[in-house]
Amino acid sequence: MMKACTAADIMEKVFISAHTDTSVFDLVHYFVKSKISAIPIVDDDQVLVGIVTDADLLYKKIKPHVPHYVNLLGASIYYNGIGKYHKGFKKLMACTAGDMMTKDVIIAAPEADVEQLAGVMVAEHLKVIPIVKNNRIVGIVTRYHILDELYKEFGEE
């Protein structure tokens, strides 16, 4: 390996971000259509204020609202009421990125060493690390970017 690879070398410079008032419905659309696992949430000056992951949407809000049911003589009996589930889902869709986002985001500078990034991602179970310079988000590094870099590095040996 010649010089240490940095976040700036491997980061995605074109990425989807959203504002705190972006609806969960729109976030889900971005996740599905773009096949991404996290969306940085920024203010009007592109300053990072939080992040929403696909897991945030699946676990934080939907999981408690999954209807409980029993199978009785081949028929599903919902004892929490299927209506309650639909209401819960409707309520989720009415939420915004600001309601869902994680505010304490682990970030890195463009100069951060890729090996260190990989270590933090593993230790903290992160799929994405936003890359921030002068308080503004300039890129994102995902597990894919790290794996791709490892693949290239070992392919050269």
Rank of each mutant, 00 (worst) to 15 (best):
T96H: 06
M93P: 03
S76W: 08
H86W: 11
Y78I: 03
I77S: 11
V114D: 09
D113A: 04
I107K: 13
I107S: 11
D99H: 08
K91V: 04
K103S: 12
G74V: 02
K84E: 15
D104W: 11
L73C: 12
G88C: 08
M100C: 05
T102W: 12
N80I: 08
K91T: 14
I106N: 06
G83A: 12
I82D: 07
I82M: 12
G81E: 07
S76I: 10
Y79C: 11
I106R: 06
E115L: 15
I82H: 06
A94S: 15
M100L: 11
V105R: 05
I106W: 00
K91S: 15
K90V: 12
C95D: 13
P110W: 00
G98S: 01
G98K: 08
G88L: 06
V114L: 09
L92Y: 02
C95Y: 01
H86E: 04
A108C: 13
G81A: 06
D99F: 10
G83H: 14
V105P: 02
A97E: 00
I82P: 00
T102C: 07
A112S: 09
F89L: 14
L92C: 10
M93T: 06
K91Q: 14
A94Q: 14
T102M: 06
G81V: 11
K91R: 15
D99I: 10
Y78T: 02
C95S: 09
K91H: 15
K87P: 11
G88I: 02
E111G: 01
H86I: 04
Y79L: 12
A112M: 05
E111P: 02
K90S: 15
K103T: 12
L73S: 13
I106Q: 04
I106S: 01
A112L: 03
S76Y: 13
E115N: 15
M101K: 08
Y85I: 02
I77P: 00
A108M: 05
N80L: 11
D104K: 15
D104A: 15
A112H: 02
T96D: 06
T102N: 09
S76C: 12
G81K: 05
Y79Q: 07
G81R: 01
Q116Y: 12
Y85W: 13
I106K: 10
A97T: 04
K91Y: 12
E111M: 09
C95E: 14
C95F: 09
K90M: 14
Y79R: 07
K91A: 13
N80E: 15
F89D: 03
I107G: 00
Q116R: 12
I77L: 01
L73N: 14
A97Y: 08
G88T: 04
G81D: 06
D99C: 01
Y78M: 03
T96I: 06
L73P: 01
K103F: 04
V105S: 02
V114M: 11
A97H: 09
M93N: 00
K87Q: 13
H86C: 07
M100I: 13
M93W: 09
P110Q: 08
H86G: 02
L73M: 13
Q116I: 10
K87C: 01
G81C: 01
A108G: 11
A94T: 10
P110I: 00
V114G: 01
Q116P: 00
E115T: 15
G98N: 04
I77C: 07
I82N: 00
A112E: 09
D99L: 03
G83V: 09
Y85A: 00
A109G: 05
P110Y: 02
A109L: 10
Y78H: 11
G98F: 09
T96R: 09
M100N: 01
A108S: 00
V114K: 05
Q116T: 03
A94N: 14
